[in-house]
Simulated assay, not measured.
Amino acid sequence: MTDVRYDRAPGDVPSEEVQAWAPSEALVYSIGLLVALVLTATSFWVANTSMLWPGGVGLGLAVLAIAQMGVHLVFFLHLTSGPDSTNNILALAFGLLIVFVVVVGTIWIVTDLNDNMLMPSSDAMNMRKQP
């Protein structure tokens, strides 16, 4: 067997040496707030400007919304790619899968109901009345 030495267990508070190199929480939250405000202001500008092609406004807003979600996940929820947040990433992926299934399933069911529940056209109704 190999002797593996761990300096700390998962969940332990890092030593003072590691904490000295980490940015403060206030700085991380301030940067996140600043980036979120810039993205929000940019989305308002995209929605109200005539400088963009009208078809590209929706795409621009979608890109800014995804970027906003990324900022919130990283700066405020502290979701990283490190080994400590593997469970959080899996929980997020599962939540996104559930939301995707619910939204796509709802659209599928409503579309199917719409196709099957259409009122017959007036021509079809007139043909049934005539003997």
Rank of each mutant, 00 (worst) to 15 (best):
L118S: 07
W108F: 12
L34N: 07
A62H: 02
I31N: 07
E17K: 06
F94R: 15
L96R: 11
V103H: 04
D115R: 13
E25P: 02
T80Y: 02
A124N: 05
G95C: 03
V28M: 11
I107R: 13
Q19F: 01
D84K: 01
S122K: 02
T86G: 05
L39R: 01
R128P: 01
S121W: 08
E16I: 09
P10D: 11
L92S: 13
P54S: 10
D123S: 07
D112Y: 08
Y29D: 12
L73E: 10
D84L: 03
G32R: 06
T86V: 10
G60Y: 09
S121P: 00
I98F: 11
G95I: 06
S81L: 11
A41G: 12
D115F: 05
F94W: 11
L64K: 08
I31P: 00
S30Q: 09
A93E: 10
M69V: 08
L73P: 00
D112M: 14
N87K: 09
T42E: 02
L37V: 11
L61F: 10
F100L: 14
I31W: 09
V13Y: 05
A20S: 15
H72Q: 14
I89V: 11
L59Q: 13
I31C: 04
G105R: 04
L27T: 14
S15L: 02
L52G: 03
L61C: 03
I107V: 08
A91K: 14
F94M: 12
G82S: 04
V110T: 14
V46W: 09
W53G: 00
N87L: 13
G11D: 05
V74G: 00
G56D: 08
L27W: 02
V18K: 05
V71K: 01
T49L: 05
L77P: 00
M127G: 00
G56F: 15
W45H: 05
A124M: 04
W53Y: 08
I31H: 12
E25I: 04
S121Y: 10
T86C: 00
L52V: 08
A20K: 14
A91W: 07
N116L: 14
V35P: 08
L118R: 14
F76H: 15
P120W: 10
F44E: 06
F44S: 07
L27H: 08
F76Q: 04
N48Y: 07
R128C: 04
S15G: 15
T40D: 01
Q130V: 13
L39N: 13
L96Q: 09
V71Y: 07
V101Q: 01
A67W: 03
Q68S: 15
T42W: 01
I98P: 00
I107S: 12
V57G: 03
S30H: 11
V46H: 02
G11L: 08
S30G: 15
E25F: 06
W45A: 14
A22G: 01
M69T: 05
D84M: 02
M51E: 11
L77Q: 11
A22V: 04
N114F: 12
V99Q: 06
V38Y: 09
V57Y: 03
T40F: 15
F76I: 12
I107A: 15
L34S: 15
L73C: 04
N87A: 08
G105P: 12
A26G: 03
L118N: 00
V104Y: 02
L39H: 07
L97A: 13
V46T: 08
A62C: 06
W21F: 07
P23H: 02
N116E: 10
W53K: 08
Q130D: 06
M119Q: 09
W21H: 09
G82T: 01
G95N: 10
